[in-house]
Design a protein around this nucleic acid. Sequence first.
RNA 1: GCCCCCUUAGCUCAGUAGGAUAGAGCACAGGAUUCCUAAUCCUGGUGUCAGAGGUUCGAAUCCUCUAGGGGGCACCA
Length: 544
Amino acid sequence: MIDIRNAIEESIKSIGIEIPFLELEVPRVAEHGDLSTPVAMTLARQLKRHPREIASDIVKKLSELDCFDKVEIAGPGFINFTFKRDFLIDQIEALIKAPSEYLHKDIGKGRKIQIEFVSANPTGPLHLGHGRGAAVGASLSNLLQRAGFEVEKEFYINDAGRQVLLLGESIFARYMEMLRKEYAFPEDGYQGDYIKDLAQEILDRDGEIYADRGFDEAAEVFVRFGVRRMLEEIKRDLEDFGVFFDRWQSEKALYDEGIVERCLKELKEREMLYEKDGAMWFRATAFGDDKDRVVIKSDGSYTYFASDIGYHWFKVQRGFDELINIWGADHHGYIPRIKAVIRALGQSDEKLSVLLVQMVNLLRGGKPIQMSKRKGEFVTLREVMEEVGADTTKFIFLTRRPDSHLDFDIEIAKRESSENPVYYIQYAYARINSIFRKSREQGISNLKDATHLNLLDKTEEIGIMKKLAFYPLMFEGAVRAREPHRITFYLQELASLFHSYYNSHRVLGTDPVITSARLALCSAVKEVLDEGLSILGVSAPERM
RNA sequence: GCCCCCUUAGCUCAGUAGGAUAGAGCACAGGAUUCCUAAUCCUGGUGUCAGAGGUUCGAAUCCUCUAGGGGGCACCA
């Protein structure tokens, strides 16, 4: 297919004007054409010429292109394009004949991106906030993959350090409780009921053998068991949510395999670490952070930051062109620190981008549900999935910008589930499939034969064709901005156009030639819905 | 005290790299099906884009300040 942006850019370049980026937009008002650019006005200052004059030069060149009916200069210097219908038909034809070529644009050129997300502590089940990170991370990965990036999805397991020790001790305390032995439940311990279940499992498996040994001796067993079990549960939750990872990186393994040690040694040799007050510090201020940070405490143990340095060092060594960390917004203060690490490792800090996902407030009927992981009072991702469904849950996350605070009202999500926008899109998809089933019954085959498309001249048909022709532009924008939620809104608009069309024109049962053309259009819509839903990780049902 | 995010219609939210007259869904009212799925469609209106300055030919969008909400500032993770 013809790349619209490219074609226009080339035309502008050919009259000797250089632009870093061509701004293209779909005008709100129909009289302003199908596509519009303010580029002449942007250039006016730089070239010290009247915008309309510049526009006129550009337009002269653009009229050589074969895809526009009209190219007009309007207002202070907008250039408005109106597509030829033949051009639109070509687009649809291209889409039907080779969907993936049409829908995927190679922007990444094989660049390797690693996306780390969720990375929940294996000390309890996933909650709704993790679900948001999972939905965003997974859809972003899908998006970038389709844009020609080589994407690796990674979950970082915090299975070393205090939190998992606390998990083990919490289980141990419950274990002792079951045996009616004295053992104080740890302060800040995990109080959820799942801890008791884990204690019971150990009791069933190993009996009372740990009772007389004390936690110090039993710690390894309890920690390892707890982490393994929690991790299994987390994996199961994610799988049921439809989110899959390529790699699970254990923090503990970073120590066991000497990665942290090697990394710190290297930093030490390059004098980026220094000793003070009996502790080892990272010279973070030399790389833009506001204070230096401890990596080895005066008692000789590592801080969490130490393994994070090692982890990012390891990521860099693995040769990614770009690293994306998706973090909860409560970690934002950590960004300068980790960026400092990237710089200290001799990388441009643009190599790492941290995408913050804002907090999710869980409400039920307008009332906030208080949550505390330690106290075991929280609503899990699984509960929400079971109550409102995985598709709906994901969709709610993906109809918002990640950096907006989100009130997730379970009651509303459930009440609206029958008229939820996700069903609206899926229904459009199911309707098309239904048409196809009917048409097969009537012996019409070769749905993909893009014949007689030139007969499509209804307003609704032209509207749909235009929308489909804009997919590549929208896709490009979503990739550039790393914003999968743009796909969501596009799909809603496309579904809306289709439903409207469906209600005003019949596909089957009219003139066979027109039927064939309309089937082809449906097939094009179907391809895009399928593609978009698949990026979002939402199912595309054949029937509803 | 310092730092980050948010504030757009009654509600939930979009607004694409600063562009032309501000957009959906929900809710509310009325209407559409002898025919491809009514989880649909059609018709109704609503805005101090939190406020005040600034930059610009042009600001919901960029900058500064103010107010409100959320989050974060450990030799915790």
